[in-house]
Write a protein that binds this DNA or RNA. Structure first.
Lengths: 298, 298
DNA sequence: TTTCCTTACGCCTATCGTAAGCATA
DNA sequence: TATGCTTACGATAGGCGTAAGGAAA
């Protein structure tokens, strides 16, 4: 078969229609050019040029081949450029995993920034429940995860992304809905929708610790794994619940939000996590952009 | 720069993800394959594969490059095929020159046949006055001409394509319009629209000879170079004229056609003409088709 | 005679295959 | 220990440039 060298020689000769000039442009002498063309013609079984030792012209077959040869040469150049851009992280695709609540608040801001700062990067968003995130990260389905602690520090690298306040979510018909703000001990021996230990371990531990330190023991009327479910129950007037600040952005019906005074004031953590051997070259720049997107709007 | 060899190796390896198996498919040993990939990667400045001495996987840059490499390899194969088809005359483009009258009758039949019998051939039709045809043929604007004799036998090869009768074209209000048929001596000393010696030499000579041999001397009221013009004058009731049979297919307003008895009965010749050094590989098959198209419908 | 494409010859780079090296399961 | 990718080495094929050959203006 022929090679790209042959095509490059052919294209230039077809443009110059003069072996000497074409050879100059190709930084070679006439003789090897002549042979390159001969080889190409022999391999194809086609006369590409009409040569009369005085004038060189394309045959019809040569004209159609020129068309294709140009495309191939151009493609080979652009393919190299594209590969280099992906390799250098200027282009490519990044898959991001997020849980509903963490994503709804942050991702629009991140996506908007990325479109401006990293125009060659295509973002793929995967909404995943917390438990699935680390597996998705491990198998390579996603390159980056927005997760609650703890992050498995053996498999993954991570960076704190955001700290949030906690809010009390109350049914709007709850008598305490008038109250300005709350503190943990307000829920001692009071009904509360709580997070399950399995499936919502982070919020379960966070709130348990909070109530323990305050010497409060709420009456857990229901355990849920997702903030969505909790807000549904609150909206149905079952009982109040505690949610991260970003959940207020969901504006659920029949629910009002009030501050919960805690120590520290911003106890809810959100982390970025990624595989230690980060083989996606676009990832470092994108992680940086995530951190800036959060900081820039804080 | 890289070569097609590198791309072919790369594509197969990307499919097998195993140097040994890929090398088998490429009819080579592992070692040169390994080096081909290394060269490609060095030339691109990009790691295409993630190698762990146990497992081979594509990097992201490799995935995008694979996409392009496949296209390039496929294109190079199809380009060779296309060039070969044109070279063998199975595909290509043929430019045909024709004069209005000769073309209008014959070309539709020829075009229809070619679409079926030579589907890879694209036809380009050029309507040209007789005088321009041989120049167009010479310069290569057209590959084939439908022409009236004489054909320059030094520059061109030719073949008789069609013989036609002559018809008398009469204004419909001419008293002789009732007459069944004519012979040349009917026009002795009668008004007639005639063809000019320059620009319509063939018909001028044909008719002059006809009238001479019949001992008739019409009264030429006007000289024209094109059959179109002659029919225009006839339709305007200036005088009758003599036209080839195919002109009747134009159905001009205000003109009636009547046979002209001549010796021989089919005196009007139409030839195919082409450059002696016929460099269009599709031409021979197409010429054959033209002759068959005429014969098959005679 | 000049121009310009092709063929001939010697040199050199690049590829090939074989074989040894080395990391991983 | 077996598998499988990489490196080392000698042989060879194909490319290049220089120089001579040959047809056309």
């Amino acid at each position: 078969m022929f090679e790209l060298t042959h095509l490059r020689c052919f294209v230039v000769l077809a443009e110059e229609l003069h072996f000497g000039k074409a050879a100059d442009r190709l930084h070679m002498t006439q003789s090897p050019l002549s042979r390159q063309i001969q080889v190409l013609e022999r391999v194809l079984g086609v006369e590409l040029f009409h040569r009369t030792s005085r004038r060189v012209t394309l045959t019809l077959a040569g004209e159609t081949f020129l068309h294709e040869a140009r495309r191939i040469v151009r493609l080979s150049e652009s393919a190299a450029l594209a590969a280099r851009r992906v390799w250098k992280g200027e282009a490519g695709r990044i898959s991001i995993g997020f849980t509903a609540v963490s994503g709804y608040m942050l991702l629009p801001r991140i996506v908007k920034r990325a479109a401006v700062a990293l125009p060659g990067i295509e973002l793929q968003l995967h909404e995943l429940v917390s438990g699935d995130q680390s597996e998705a990260l491990h198998t390579g389905l996603i390159d980056l995860a927005l997760v609650r602690p703890p992050v498995n520090r053996v498999q993954f690298d991570s960076a704190p992304l955001l700290l949030e306040k906690l809010l009390v979510a109350l049914p709007e018909d709850d008598p305490r809905a008038e109250q300005e703000s709350f503190e943990p001990r307000d829920f001692d021996d009071k009904d509360l929708v709580m997070y399950a230990q399995r499936g919502a371990g982070y919020f379960n531990q966070l709130l348990s610790g909070l109530f323990d330190r305050a010497g409060a023991a709420p009456n857990y009327v229901q355990f849920v794994t997702q903030i969505h479910s909790l807000l549904g129950l609150v909206g149905a007037s079952l009982a109040p619940g505690i949610v991260p600040e970003s959940a207020a952005g969901l504006s659920p019906r029949g629910v009002v939000f009030r501050p919960l005074r805690t120590e520290p004031a911003l106890p809810v953590e959100l982390y970025l996590a990624w595989r230690r051997e980060c083989e996606n070259p676009a990832l470092p720049a994108f992680r940086e952009l995530c951190l800036q997107a959060v900081a820039g709007d804080a």
